[in-house]
Every structure is written in structure tokens, then in C-alpha cells.
Design a protein around this nucleic acid. Structure first.
Lengths: 216, 216
DNA sequence: TATGATAGTAACTTGTTACTTACATGACAA
DNA sequence: TTGTCATGTAAGTAACAAGTTACTATCATA
């Protein structure tokens, strides 16, 4: 409860609005990891920043605006992490592996993120945040499907592979990892579990014959 | 909001406590599907049953007791659905497929269930409900691992298969399906997606050679 | 048909949450 | 140095949630 800003060693009292906004967003992500999204009250955010409740409303008109800013941060930083993995080159299967571990690494580093997303998935379906999330995941799935197409073209995966199902399986595996690490090991075990799971996933993509990749 | 008991065509006013308790549990599961778990206020439950707020507390001492009863129902009914699939016989891989589709079918039929579970996963880690959930999923994972061991013994899956990773991948696939259907198609498309994903999953278990199952 | 127990109602109390308002203060520019 | 404005504080308010209490209606049964 009384856990004032342990992440900010020196906390000047007065901050320019841009910095304060960034601090608020960071506090939300941290609180999501510590106490779950339902524990994120405006009071809790203020406490964590070592500031009074009312100060928040100098920088955001209401709580929804804070959530919007959190989504902005999410799109930017997750997009950057995955985008880099996509861009780095190499053959399609190398890229796929990089993306997988980049994704897992990101959520392991920011355990609040999946909590926020699951939380968002529980409200009614039509909200703007929900549509942003849908666009984010949908775009990701598209890029994955493109990667699978490229791997088929390069002869790394069988022509018969259902690309959309493969993309869904890929995403599902990551999401399943998140849930199970939330339930059992905690986020620490996540990367290790991912390492054990990924070969199985890859075999699923390679299909029944396993013949395509001769040089392995 | 004003959606009084559409599930109960004839709603006698006075019900014996056991029936009322069952109705309350059912209302919670339905409300979870309709408005998400955070929308489940005691008032909303009462409205749905066509009863006043105070009436609930004739049958449960407090809200936590209602949640406990919901978990009782979950353990019983999900346990029954999966237990049947496990017990029905046939070779291990047949059983595995039955369990997969039984699980998917159950959550497709009760869309509120995953919402409740995700909601439970967001609170602090030590709660009793959380431990029950952990035991439920842990036991499931154990049974799956046993199934994989049996399949290895029967020569249906390669000896090198990592059983625990396989069980985690199996569960993750279902959980990923749930999340993506919540985000996109809705629960209707879930069973269809499951049908497309399952072959890939199976190939993952069969491993790189795909040689074991000669008679296929 | 009278009676005791069970189920339901209406109107509270108490605590929490988002948001507001009136006032204070530190930093920076002229 | 001083005036000004962005940032912050303290103390509110309104809405809503859970749970309680005093009373009422209905049922089973003796």
C-alpha cells in the first residue's frame, strides 16, 4: 500500500508535464505487475509517485486518458521490440525464432503487460481500447502469416502448411506460456519454458514428414 | 442492465435455498460472459434473478462465498467433461484428441468460464481461489503428461518427447484459442479454429522425424 | 387454522473510487 | 526582484458497492 516510487531514486517534487505523464504510465505498468490491474486506483498511482491524488488530474483529464497513454506506450515499445526482431534479416525460420523469443522476453521483462491485456479483454467488446488491441494483435498475426509464406517459398516449411493456423498457434503458445507462468513459476521460469516449448512448436510447423529441412 | 432472468422462463418468487444458490452461480457465469467479471456486482446478480440485493445474503454470507460456489461448480462440471474424455478408452492419441476437443467445447459452451479464470489470475498470488485454480490446472497437466508417457510407451510418440513441455504446449494452445476467439471471432469460431490447429499441434508432438507412426 | 421457520423487501450504513475546487508554492522570464 | 503560471496540496463531493437491519410474505405442518 505505502510503496512510494521505489523505481525513481531521486524524485524531484515538481516535474514538467511530459515527464510526469511518463511516470504515471510507468507506475500503471508496475502496479499491474504487483497488484493486478484492478488494484490500479488513481490513489495507488499517486501514492507510488509520491504525489497526491489530485496531481494526476493536472496531467490527464480522466482515468481513461491514462489508460490510453498506457496503450500508446505498449504499442510503441512492443512494436519496437518485435519490429526489430522482424527486421534483423536472416532466413524466415531464423526470424521466426527471434520474434518468438523477443515476444517472450518482452512480457517477461514487463509482467504487467499481459495483465493489462487480459484485463482489457474482459470488458464489453466494442470499446476503443479493445479495438486498438485487436488491431495490434491482428497486425502481428498478419506479419507472422507473411513470415510463414516466406518460409514456404524458401522451402523451409511444407507447402501444405496452413499459415493462419500456424500464426494462431504461434500466438497461442506465447499466451499460454504467459498464463501458466502467472499460475506457476512466476515470470522467471517463462524464458526457460519457452526454450523447451519452441522446438515442439517448430516441429508442428514442419509438418508430418519433417522432410523439407534436409540439412538439419 | 435491466435484464431480468431471461434464462428462467418461469421464475417462482420463493425458491428453496439450494435452488437459489444454483441460480446465483449460474447468473454469475452468465454475467461473466455478458459483461465480464468486473461487471458482476451483487446488485447485477440480484437483478438478473429478479430479486432484491439483500436476498442474496440469505443464501451466502458474503460475496466471496458466492465465488467459492462458482469454483465448486467449475471443478465439478469441467472435471466431469474432461474426466469423461480421459476415461473413454481407445489408444493414447485418440484420448488426447478427445480431451482437446472436450476442453475447447466446454469453454465454447460456457464463455464466462475463461473470463472468470483470467480474472482470478490477476489478483495477488496467495488467495485460496488462486490455489484451487492452480491445483485444478496442475492436476490437468499431470494427467496430460501421463497420457504422453502412455503414448510413448505405445510407440505412438517419439521417446525423445519432453512430456512436460508437451503438456504445457497443449494447454497453451487451448488458452491461446480462448484469447484469440475473445478478441476476434467470438466463441463461435473457436471450435473451427481448434480443428485447424490440432493437426499442427499433433505434428509438434510427433517430432522432427514423423517416423514413429508408420501405419498412418 | 395457527405457528414457526424460511425467503424476500426496503432502506439504511460504511467504505471506496473517480473527479473537483480553492488555495499554496516553486521555477523561470522580464 | 517580482509577477506569473504550471505544478502540487488539502479537503471536499457524488456515485456506487457490499453488507446489515427491521420488517413482511409465504410455506409446511401439527
Amino acid at each position: 500500500m505505502s510503496d512510494p516510487h521505489p523505481a525513481t531514486p531521486e524524485s524531484r517534487r515538481r516535474l514538467p508535464s511530459a515527464e510526469r505523464q511518463a511516470g504515471i504510465v510507468a507506475a500503471v505498468v508496475e502496479l499491474a505487475a504487483l497488484h493486478g490491474p484492478s488494484g490500479i486506483t488513481t490513489q495507488a498511482i499517486a501514492d507510488r509517485l509520491g504525489v497526491t491524488h489530485g496531481a494526476l488530474f493536472r496531467h490527464f483529464p480522466d482515468k481513461q486518458a491514462i489508460w490510453n497513454a498506457v496503450f500508446d506506450w505498449l504499442e510503441t515499445s512492443l512494436g519496437a521490440a518485435l519490429g526489430e526482431a522482424f527486421r534483423e534479416g536472416g532466413d524466415p525460420l531464423d526470424t521466426l525464432g527471434r520474434v518468438f523469443f523477443a515476444h517472450v522476453g518482452f512480457v517477461a521483462a514487463h509482467p504487467g503487460v499481459p495483465r493489462i491485456l487480459f484485463h482489457e479483454l474482459q470488458g464489453p467488446a466494442g470499446t476503443p481500447s479493445r479495438q486498438r488491441l485487436r488491431a495490434l494483435v491482428g497486425g502481428y498475426r498478419e506479419r507472422l502469416a507473411g513470415l510463414f509464406r516466406a518460409a514456404k517459398r524458401a522451402g523451409q516449411l511444407p507447402q501444405a502448411l496452413d499459415e493462419e493456423a500456424a500464426a494462431a498457434l504461434f500466438l497461442g503458445t506465447v499466451q499460454g506460456l504467459v498464463l501458466q507462468s502467472a499460475l506457476f513459476a512466476g515470470e522467471a521460469g517463462m524464458v526457460e519454458s519457452a526454450r523447451r516449448l519452441y522446438p515442439l512448436l517448430l516441429d508442428g510447423f514442419r509438418g508430418p514428414a519433417g522432410t523439407v529441412r534436409a540439412g538439419d
